[in-house]
Design a binder for these strands. Structure first.
Length: 571
DNA sequence: GCCGTTTTCGGCCCGACTGTTTTCAGTCG
């Protein structure tokens, strides 16, 4: 098994961690961390790149030295720098540094002075009263660390849709504060990541301190972690952390930029400011002490001489280079979507009749919808057999005769059997406008077998779209083992499309995979997999994810008019 | 360890809050 990108990234992260604890040059450890981020989001595996003879030092943040080290890791599965550091600083120092309030400096102090090599050592140091005697530690540190050690370290990220529910309720509460001007959720929530680790709220107000005060009294607050005049951090009962920041109005744009992130994007922007001899912080863009921009984000981007970058793209994945040359993609919007290509009715496990789903789609100003009920192998969903499918096709034909300016397409979500064969024979499939194929059973095949299974399904020319390609359910089920690089290449070669499932529990493909697919020339379908009328509304989550993947309307088949869509569905 | 239209040295993002200290280092985002 070749070394995965994620494994190399993890080695570099560990190396950075230990270098920090050791007290090595901080910029050296930063270089390892930067390289780890670059590697983990590469669209292709390092192994593939090396085989193709690519020069890894061409990658941003990776120079001659790290390129050589990566090649050695791939060849030997070992990283001598990390191995040496581990021998030098034995134990689980990474776990210790992950505790809140402990960073590299304090971990080193604990290691040197108290011989703390593990979480268990730390527990003992606390019990024996030695910790609080250490310079820089006291009763508070002891208490907080004891609490952190007592509860399991399940660092949870929240699904975007879950966070939205929390955010809306809290915003409504805060907006009733006296003197509140603006309140907006920034952070990864505004970048529309599939999951968020916390909520970052930015506020402008006449009396900022009182807004922070009000947040600490919110009924859903479980604990207050920090509370100052301009910044307050609380944890909600749901365990979602909330950071509130108050800034004066002329700084709103700068603060929004800063608080939206990503951190890596901000660092890159600050680098541009530095190059011009300016300084960028959350209060504005400054030449000496003079603020030259700050009220809006656009103003700051303009002053920096680059195009304004949409929040969804702010990940330092190459967007800044595009903005410098004015070549940012024109990201797809909700208004570009003309139909939904994965929808269930009450013929299988949906709740509404076909006519009602169609009417709801028309109400959304769509031009078409595809009914794609399950095939019979998916018995738990009352999958259709060939006879029922034939009757459903008749019903849709009759419905289409009555509809004007709107078309119901005849599809099916056909189960991909373990061997890659489909759950209907070609004779049945040929009666449909197109087929969505998906895996519903046997998630535990080997990576090789699972990949072959999906490619085999794509070999069938009736299959136009592979639905929820990795099968993941966020926070509930891991994606099945799959060589996505091979899947995308196979889809490109066959003119098959991949789904970006918009269900907020799935969001499958991920942003990175969707971006890779686009780069490979594969088009995507942003589909809701709706099982009810309300489910159609999830399309916005799919569009958010698509924007994170840099998709434009041209990359998305259901952003095309019906005539063009029909051509794209034919293979 | 990376990087470069102020290049091969000398930089590398920036500020708020906490705890412990008595003026600030460390952590965090």
């Amino acid at each position: 098994m070749p070394v995965q990108n994620a494994e190399i990234a993890a080695m570099f992260d560990q190396t950075a961690e230990l270098l920090e604890i050791k007290g090595d040059n901080p910029f050296r450890s930063r270089a390892y961390r930067n390289a780890a981020r670059v590697i983990e989001r590469l669209p292709k595996s390092i192994t593939t790149l090396l085989k193709a003879g690519e020069d890894l030092s061409e990658l941003p943040g990776i120079g001659k030295d790290l390129a050589g080290k990566i090649a050695t890791i791939v060849a030997t599965q070992k990283f001598d720098v990390l191995d040496r550091l581990k021998r030098e600083l034995p134990g689980d120092l990474g776990e210790i540094a992950a505790l809140p309030g402990l960073g590299p400096k304090r971990v080193k102090l604990l290691y040197d002075r108290l011989g703390v090599h593990s979480l268990e050592d730390l527990r003992r140091a606390i019990r024996s009263g030695r910790l609080r005697k250490l310079r820089g530690f006291g009763a508070k540190s002891e208490e907080k660390l004891a609490a952190a050690l007592a509860k399991p370290q399940a660092e949870k990220r929240f699904k975007l849709a879950e966070a939205e529910g929390e955010a809306e309720a809290m915003l409504a509460y805060l907006r009733s504060s006296a003197g509140l001007d603006q309140a907006v959720i920034a952070g990864s929530f505004r970048r529309r990541r599939d999951t968020v680790g916390d909520l970052d709220i930015l506020v402008t107000a006449r009396d900022g301190a009182s807004v922070g005060e009000r947040l600490t009294k919110y009924e859903n607050v479980a604990s207050v972690l920090a509370h100052g005049p301009t910044r307050t951090t609380v944890v909600l009962r749901s365990q979602l952390q909330v950071d509130l920041r108050v800034v004066p109005k002329p700084s709103y744009g700068a603060a929004l930029l800063y608080f939206t992130g990503s951190k890596a994007h901000n660092i890159a922007l600050r680098g541009i400011a530095n190059d011009r001899g300016w300084k960028l912080n959350e209060y504005g863009l400054f030449a000496d002490k003079r603020r030259i921009a700050g009220a809006t984000e656009d103003e700051i981007y303009r002053k920096l001489g680059i195009a304004a970058i949409p929040p969804e793209m702010r990940e330092d994945r190459g967007e800044i280079a595009l903005a410098k040359t004015g070549k940012l993609p024109k990201l797809i919007t909700l208004g570009d979507i003309r139909g939904d290509l994965h929808v269930h009715s009450n013929w299988s496990d949906g709740t509404a009749p076909i006519a009602e789903m169609a009417a709801a789609a028309q109400a959304r100003d769509y031009a078409y919808i595809a009914i794609t009920d399950h095939s019979h192998h998916v018995t738990v969903a009352h999958g259709l057999d060939a006879a029922r499918l034939a009757r459903q096709i008749d019903e849709i034909d009759r419905l289409n005769e009555k509809l004007e300016g709107f078309t119901v397409l005849k599809g099916a979500e056909v189960d991909i059997l373990a061997d890659g064969n489909l759950d209907f024979p070609d004779k049945v499939l040929s009666k449909l406008d197109f087929v969505v194929a998906a895996v519903h059973y046997k998630f535990d095949l080997s990576r090789k077998a699972q990949t072959e299974r999906l490619i085999r399904a794509m070999d069938n020319r009736h299959v136009s779209i592979i639905a929820h390609p990795t099968g993941r359910l966020i926070n509930e089920r891991e994606p099945y083992e799959l060589d996505m690089e091979a899947i995308i290449a196979a889809a490109a070669a066959r003119g098959c499309h991949l789904e970006l499932n918009a269900d907020p529990d799935r969001l499958d493909l991920t942003d990175i995979h969707a971006h890779t697919a686009k780069a490979a020339g594969v088009k995507l379908a942003i589909s809701t997999d709706a099982h009810s009328i309300g489910g159609l509304g999830n399309v916005r989550f799919g569009v958010d994810q698509a924007r994170r993947a840099w998709l434009e309307a041209a990359d998305v088949i259901n952003a095309q008019p019906l005539s063009r869509l029909k051509k794209l569905l034919k293979r």
